[in-house]
Amino acid sequence: MKDRKQAALQRLARLEGQVRGVIRMVEEDRYCVDILNQTLAVRSALAQVEILILQDHADECVEEAITSNDPEAQRQKFRELVGIFERVCR
Rank of each mutant, 00 (worst) to 15 (best):
A8T: 07
V49I: 11
D56F: 01
H57M: 07
L81E: 14
A65D: 04
T39I: 15
L9R: 08
F78H: 01
I66Y: 06
K77T: 12
F85K: 11
V22N: 00
L52N: 05
C32T: 03
F78N: 06
R4L: 02
L15I: 13
R20M: 10
R24C: 09
Q55F: 02
M25S: 07
F85Y: 15
A8G: 11
E60Y: 08
V19G: 02
I84W: 10
Q6G: 02
H57W: 06
R90A: 08
F78L: 13
N37I: 06
M1L: 00
L15H: 07
E28Y: 06
E86S: 12
V82Y: 13
E63D: 15
V19S: 00
L81C: 14
N37S: 15
E86W: 14
A65R: 05
A13R: 13
R4P: 01
G21A: 06
L54G: 12
R30C: 01
D59C: 02
Q55V: 04
E50A: 02
C61F: 04
E72T: 13
P71T: 12
M1V: 02
L9W: 01
L46D: 08
D3F: 00
D70P: 03
K5Q: 06
K2S: 07
R75M: 08
E64R: 10
V22Q: 00
R4H: 07
F85L: 15
E72P: 03
A8F: 03
S68K: 05
E64P: 03
C32Y: 07
I23N: 07
R90N: 13
S44D: 11
Q18S: 05
H57D: 09
R4K: 09
